[in-house]
Computed example of a mutant assay.
Amino acid sequence: MAPHTGPAEPPRLTEDEFGVLYRRLLSRAAWASGDRGALVALTPARVAAATREVRTGRTVTLAAPVETLPGPDNPEPAKHRMRGQPGEDAAGGLHFAMDRFAMNVHGDADSHIDALCHVIYDGTLHGGVAASSVTAYGATALTIETARDGIVGRGVLLDIPRLRGVPWLDPGDHVTADDLSSAETAQHVRVTEGDLLFVRVGHRRRRGELGAWHAADARAGLHPSALEFLADRRVAVLGGDGNNDTAPSSTEGVDFPVHVLAIHAMGLHLLDYLQFEDLAPVCEAEGRWSFLCVIAALRLPDATGSPVNPIAIL
């Protein structure tokens, strides 16, 4: 495949330009302004149609293993402790091995899903809900409990490094709307209303081959203007193998513009730091980039997100 160099570097956005983009996407996503946000696109009919994506019955995880050792991008890793040491006194009778976990859900290493209460922008949450609904004891609105019945639909993986003929996008590089459209063409797939869109930038492959780095300061992601593509197609969910946002930010005065636009303006649940290194080769071998996808967050009624293990079923 000939390398695809992509469009010219997209421009940085001023605060005013970002404000215009925000208001435009907010208006276009008015259909997703309720408590469930864009999940309202996952109608029973669309979920039933997504099951027709299953042909071989093969299942593939989209999550990375939970890490318990600190690193440059994971200074507060998950803590795993065994409750007791059952192996030492298990000579006879019945015994149970038990665990305890603690996790910083919104870190830069572990796969997780962001609830609609995760982003506070200009004093409100998605849909104009007051920021005061998020307290020291948890959130009282738009929590991850909204997705308690699971998120099930047609998943589509757009592989941008494949499009460009490179193993990964370098930190600071941007995925544009043109990239997304070109990837559709190259992969013979089209993103449609209600789809769960996954965008590969190669973050996990780079991390695996070169080692972890301080991803909070430098990572590939979507350019804010690429959210116009998502609005056009009315997708239900956005997931990436990085943070979805580029670092450094492309927007003056806003560090996470994609999070603001996707969650706050468009009502999209975001999945950050997934991994597609298991899925992409399967899609390549089967010659198809769509699949049934099941996303099950933990039932944490007051939480702004959850660890997650999405499953693609082909």
Rank of each mutant, 00 (worst) to 15 (best):
H4N: 13
T14H: 02
E17L: 03
E17N: 06
L21S: 07
S27F: 03
A30W: 00
V40W: 00
P44Q: 06
A50V: 09
E53D: 13
V54R: 07
V54D: 09
R55M: 15
T61E: 08
A64W: 01
P75V: 09
P75S: 05
P75F: 01
A78L: 08
M82Y: 03
Q85P: 15
G87N: 11
A91E: 10
G92V: 14
G93T: 10
M103F: 07
H106T: 12
D114A: 04
A115D: 07
V119N: 07
Y121F: 14
A130N: 12
Y137N: 13
G138E: 05
G138S: 06
G138L: 06
A141Q: 10
T143I: 05
T146G: 13
V152M: 05
G153S: 07
R154A: 07
G155K: 00
V156A: 01
V156T: 05
R162D: 10
V166F: 00
D170Y: 04
P171G: 05
V175Y: 00
D179I: 04
L180D: 10
S181M: 08
V189S: 02
R190S: 15
G194D: 08
D195M: 02
V201S: 04
V201E: 02
V201K: 00
A212N: 07
W213E: 08
G221H: 04
L222T: 11
R233Y: 02
A236F: 01
S250N: 11
H259V: 13
I263F: 04
I263L: 09
L268H: 03
H269R: 10
D272S: 08
Y273C: 05
V282F: 02
C283V: 13
C283L: 07
W289S: 07
S290V: 13
L298G: 14
P301C: 04
G305I: 09
N309A: 11
